[in-house]
Simulated scan of single mutants.
Amino acid sequence: MNDTLYQLATVAIPMIVAIVFHEVAHGRMARLLGDRTAQDRGRLSFNPLRHVDPVGTVFLPGMLALAHAPVFGWAKPVPVDVRGLPHPRRAMMIVGAAGPAMNFALAAVAAVGIGILARIEPGAGLVAQFVFDNLVNFLVINLSLACFNLLPLPPFDGSHIVEGLLPERAANAYARLRPLGLPIILVLLVVLPWLMPAIDPVRALLVQPVSWLGEHYLALASLVAGRPLDA
């Protein structure tokens, strides 16, 4: 297989799975709390075609991975309407937290899978290597996606968690920043690093927690493998 296509496949497949499960987790948690919006629009399905954005879910992450840049992406957001629920702000906090929680759980599944495959002899073949590479990327992508979405900036999940934790007056003031969320993200992700390459606040906030979590998930993989695994 062409090396570029191989790399794209080992990024695109885990990225699609991670994002689809992330979005479905939001919708299913909303349904559990009483909001049927996602269910009525057929968005609780794990069918990737209902969630994948060709640019944000496949093309952009693949290009970033090939360029050895931080990988991130997005999907078609699952529609949620908690305004009719008791304590809607708290409900939205729980719905928002469900996506990253799902990614942390999927990272644990990836770690177990890595540990199991590590027990297979090196000569197991191309298929086993392909699965192993997908699992490694699946682990990193899920941890990155979870931490990225926990940033306390609109429209990320972290902003809903912050709103749910703040007192009402402070939460209302914070919510007024929501229309500014996209410009703020563009400045932090694109403009600031381009103007001042030495300053990359988002990457600085993400690299350390993702690395720290990766070490602990790798420890789980080593435990399953029965031997230490290299980072």
Results as ranks from 00 to 15, higher is better:
Phe46Asn: 04
Phe46Gln: 01
Leu188Glu: 03
Gly84Lys: 11
Phe156Pro: 12
Val207Tyr: 11
Pro122Asp: 11
Gly214Ala: 09
Pro77Val: 10
Leu49Lys: 02
Ala18Tyr: 05
Tyr217Asp: 03
Ile13Met: 11
Asn2Glu: 13
Pro228Ser: 08
Leu33Thr: 09
Ala118Pro: 04
Val17Asp: 00
Pro77Asp: 08
Leu186Pro: 08
Gly123Lys: 00
Leu186Ser: 08
Val58Pro: 07
Leu165Val: 08
Pro86Asn: 07
Arg36Val: 11
Ala75Asn: 06
Ala108His: 02
Glu215Pro: 03
Leu32Ser: 15
Val162Asp: 04
Val52Lys: 01
Arg31Cys: 04
Ala128Met: 14
Gly34Ile: 11
Ser144Tyr: 01
Gly181Met: 04
Ala111Lys: 05
Asp40Leu: 12
Leu186Ile: 15
Thr10Arg: 14
Pro228Phe: 06
Gly181Lys: 03
Lys76Leu: 11
Gln208Trp: 15
Ala69Asp: 07
Leu8Tyr: 06
Phe130Asn: 11
Leu5Pro: 05
Leu44Tyr: 09
Pro228His: 05
Ala97Asn: 10
Leu145Gln: 10
Val127Tyr: 13
Gln208Lys: 10
Met1Trp: 14
Trp194Phe: 12
Ala171Thr: 00
Leu205Val: 05
Gly99Asp: 11
Met92Thr: 13
Ala12Met: 12
Leu180Asp: 02
Val55Ser: 09
Ile120Pro: 00
Gln129Glu: 13
Asn2Lys: 14
Pro79Phe: 03
Val95Trp: 09
